[in-house]
Amino acid sequence: MANEVAHAADAHGAHADDHFHPQWSTYWKVAVVLTAITVVEVWIYYIPSFVASKLFVPSLLIMSAVKFAIVVMFYMHLKYDHKLFRALFTGPLLIAIGTLFGLMFLFGKLAIRLGLGAG
């Protein structure tokens, strides 16, 4: 059948017709990056001077955000997939993160210094 012919034709190719197809090597590279970031995360946790510094929390947050993004983009192949899926995920995610920040402000876990005195 025509289908099978098409399959045989791109057996060695990169499945050009499919919209998502990172290679095995990409998956492994992503895994290496994820592992490396995790190692760094745990490593800095054991450096007391860094834990005490102002950079500790932001750097952890950035690293986990990068891991989060890499998994979503490559393993959940959102980078290669239909833009509708991106909208279905990022829209709710942004509202959820906005809610998280709202709650952190409301419960005094975060504060904006406005210089208005007691706030």
């Binding site: 279905l88 995920f89 995610l93 959820a96 993160i97 998280l100």
Partner: peptide
């Protein structure tokens, strides 16, 4: 994907509570 979007809100509620 819509389900996963919904789950974002579920886990944000749980994580927020932990942090609060």
């Amino acid at each position: 994907w819509a389900f996963i979007g919904s789950e974002c809100m579920l886990f944000v509620s749980l994580i927020s509570t932990y942090l609060i």
